[in-house]
C-alpha cells in the first residue's frame, strides 16, 4: 500500500486507533522515526514545546507509560505535571468532569489520561479545550502502544501490510490487543488472536480477526507474535485454572514458537510475567525479541503525538 505523503494531522485528540486513517498512522510513524535518532543523541532536548503545559492524569497505576509520556514531553521542552490517583481529588469524591474542568481552568495544552473505565478519555475530551491523548482506557484502547508496536515492526520488517500477526493471551481484557487489532487491520496486516475460550471476547470475529484456541495453529507461519500480559487475579481459577496449565497451553516457549516463521519477531507490551505467558529464554533473546526496542520506540511515538497534536496551536 502506498500513501500520499501527508504532513498535517487532522485530529484534535488521540483517543483511539479506530478513528485514524492509514495516512494518519504513516505520518505518526514517520515523525516518530525522526525522534528515535534525536533520543539516541547526547543532547536529547528540543524547545519545540517550550512554554507549553502537559498534564499526565493517571487514574491507574503506571510506571512505564507514565515515564515514557513524561520523558517525551520533557525532551520536547514542555512543562510536564504528573497527577496520579493517590494525590488527586478523585479520592475526595470529585467526578471526572469536575476534575477535567478544574484542570482546564489551568490552561494546559495537552492532557494525557489513563483511566480504568473504557471511554473516560472521550468524556474528558468533550469538556476541555486542549488536546487529549488516551494513555489507556479500561479494556478499550491504548493507541500509543499500538503505534509504538507498529513502529517497531516497521523497523524490523520494513512494512506492515501483508504480515501475519498473532496476538496471544488475554484478548478479552486487553486494550493493547484492541488498539493493535485496529491498527494492523487499517495497515493491511493479517491478524490472528490466540487464547483460551475464557479470555477471547465472544464476538471476537467482529474485530476482523481469525480466532484460535491453540498456539500450534495460531502461530503457524506467523511473522509477528505479540504476547499479552495475564493479570494475576485472572489465573487462579477464575478464567484459567492455574499458572502451570496456562503456561502449558498458552505460554510462549521455543517449542510453540517453532511453527512460526524462522525470523518471527516476539513482542510484549510489558511488564512480563516470566513463566506465565512467556519463557525467559525467548524474552531475553535479542535476535527474536523486540521487547526492549518497543520501550525505546514508545518515547519517540509519544513525542510524535505531542508534536502533531500541538502543531496547529503552535502555528
Amino acid at each position: 500500500m502506498t500513501h500520499t505523503h501527508q504532513t498535517s494531522f487532522a485530529h484534535r485528540h488521540l483517543l483511539d486507533i479506530a478513528s485514524l486513517s492509514a495516512n494518519d498512522i504513516d505520518l505518526l510513524l514517520n515523525v516518530a522515526e525522526g525522534y528515535v535518532s534525536k533520543s539516541r543523541a547526547g543532547d536529547k532536548k528540543s524547545s519545540l514545546l517550550h512554554g507549553r503545559t502537559q498534564i499526565n492524569l493517571f487514574f491507574e497505576n503506571s510506571t512505564r507509560t507514565l515515564t515514557s509520556f513524561e520523558l517525551a514531553g520533557k525532551r520536547l521542552g514542555a512543562d510536564v505535571i504528573n497527577m496520579s490517583v493517590g494525590s488527586s481529588s478523585v479520592k475526595k469524591g470529585e467526578t471526572l468532569i469536575d476534575t477535567a474542568m478544574t484542570l482546564n481552568a489551568m490552561h494546559p495544552d495537552v492532557l494525557v489520561i489513563r483511566h480504568s473505565d473504557s471511554g473516560a478519555p472521550h468524556l474528558l475530551a468533550q469538556k476541555v479545550d486542549c488536546a487529549v491523548i488516551n494513555a489507556g482506557d479500561g479494556s478499550h484502547e491504548h493507541p500509543t502502544q499500538a503505534l509504538l508496536d507498529a513502529l517497531t515492526i516497521r523497523n524490523r520488517k520494513g512494512k506492515l501490510a501483508g504480515l501475519t500477526v498473532a496476538i496471544c493471551g488475554d484478548i478479552q481484557h486487553s486494550r493493547v490487543a484492541r488498539s493493535n487489532i485496529a491498527l494492523l487491520n487499517i495497515m493491511g496486516a493479517r491478524v490472528r488472536i490466540v487464547g483460551p475460550t475464557t479470555l477471547i471476547p465472544s464476538n471476537a470475529k467482529a474485530l476482523g480477526v481469525e480466532v484460535y484456541h491453540s498456539m500450534e495453529e495460531g502461530l503457524k507461519d506467523a511473522d509477528i507474535v505479540m504476547m499479552l500480559r495475564l493479570q494475576t487475579e485472572r489465573m487462579q481459577g477464575a478464567f484459567v485454572p492455574s499458572i502451570r496449565e496456562y503456561f502449558h497451553y498458552f505460554g510462549l516457549d521455543k517449542q510453540k514458537l517453532s511453527v512460526a516463521k524462522p525470523d518471527a519477531l516476539i513482542m510484549h507490551p510489558g511488564p512480563m510475567n516470566r513463566g506465565v505467558e512467556i519463557d525467559s529464554e525467548i524474552a531475553d533473546d535479542l535476535n527474536i525479541s523486540a521487547i526492549s526496542e518497543q520501550v525505546e520506540m514508545g518515547v519517540a511515538i509519544r513525542m510524535a503525538c505531542l508534536d502533531l497534536l500541538t502543531r496547529e496551536a503552535r502555528s
Binding site: G237, A238, V240, P241, R244, H248
Partner: peptide
Amino acid sequence: LTKGMEGTEMAELGL
C-alpha cells in the same frame, strides 16, 4: 470441575 469440588475456582481441566 472445580478445585476441591468447592465450586469457586476452575480445576486444571486441560492437564
